[in-house]
């Protein structure tokens, strides 16, 4: 009888401990959620004001409008180019890793991808600076593109390899058994089967790279003038945010927030696209 009562008490105690633990976890999570809501709220609230045609038309001077526009143009040019360069390389390297998994070049490749993925973006900026900016004494959009390629490539290669690994070997073997040469089997069976997955990985890589600021600061440098030449300084959204963030000028602050909202929107679209492409079917 006594023991049963004791048992009941200890059960209540255990329930209480568990309850307290749950409350602690929920509180900690709420602490994490609070600043994040604040970031999203501030960005959306301040950013929407800056992205209206009214804002662009009236408080902005012509020079400011130019600086605003060139950021969008520069990011669009460099990101598009970087994606176009990254995609084929990562598909080729991904195929190489799957086709010859134990070749020494493949092992070196995996190590390189590991190292490049772990490297801080600023170090990649410095490396590209030493390669392209220092010898020519000229910041350029091309250097910025190269930096973005080096940042995107490891992510893209890794995801491509993962996707290719998941393709059943029997699919390719059945193509080979029909007398199809190896390269045709890869071209006609492997790549089409994996294409959605590869694209999805590229979207993730692009969303990673689109917000990179530090390497662009050392390579593309940024400019307030409309610039489409790849051999000259080029503007970018993150650079504009950086340059205007510390100013006390309300309009410049608003431009920074507008850039931030645009950047986050692009990222959210890219990530949702990657989910949508990756999970279809």
């Amino acid at each position: 009888m006594v023991s049963k009562q004791k048992l009941g008490q200890s059960a209540i105690k255990r329930q209480r401990i568990s309850m307290m633990w749950t409350i602690i976890i929920i509180t900690l999570s709420a602490v994490a959620i609070f600043p994040i809501i604040s970031i999203l709220e501030l960005t959306i609230y301040n950013g929407i004001k800056a992205l209206t045609p009214h804002f662009v038309a009236s408080p902005l001077l012509a020079a400011e409008r130019e600086a605003f526009a060139t950021a969008f143009i520069g990011t669009a040019i460099m990101m598009t180019l970087a994606t176009i360069i990254t995609l084929p390389i990562s598909i080729l390297v991904g195929i190489l890793c799957v086709e010859h998994p134990n070749h020494w070049i493949v092992r070196m490749c995996r190590l390189s991808v590991d190292i490049l993925q772990g490297a801080p973006a600023i170090v990649i900026g410095i490396i590209v600076y030493c390669w392209m900016v220092f010898p020519t004494r000229q910041f350029s959009g091309l250097a910025g593109t190269l930096a973005l390629v080096i940042i995107m490539m490891p992510v893209s290669i890794r995801s491509t390899e993962e996707v290719l690994k998941k393709i059943p070997r029997s699919l390719i073997e059945s193509a080979l058994a029909l007398g199809v040469p190896n390269y045709r089997a890869i071209q006609k069976v492997m790549i089409p089967t994996a294409f959605r997955g590869i694209l999805s990985g590229t979207c993730i890589a692009a969303s990673r790279a689109s917000g990179e600021t530090a390497p662009l600061l050392l390579t593309a440098f940024g400019t307030p003038f409309i610039a489409v030449s790849l051999l000259k300084e080029m503007g970018a959204l993150p650079l504009m945010i950086y340059h205007y963030s510390a100013s006390h000028n309300d309009i410049w602050q608003a431009m920074a927030w507008g850039g931030a909202l645009a950047l986050i929107t692009v990222n959210v679209i890219l990530i949702s696209a990657s989910h949508w492409i990756g999970h279809e079917k």
């Binding site: 080729l92 390297v93 195929i95 086709e99 070049i105 493949v106 490539m153």
Partner: peptide, 28 residues
């Protein structure tokens, strides 16, 4: 010939990635 070309393209891409990393470390 095509098979060979394809295979060498694969290995070239691999060598490109490795040399990128190597060049980065050497530069630093």
């Amino acid at each position: 010939a095509k098979e060979l070309a394809f295979k060498s393209a694969l290995f070239l891409a691999g060598i490109f990635v490795v040399s990128l990393m190597g060049a980065a470390i050497i530069t630093l």
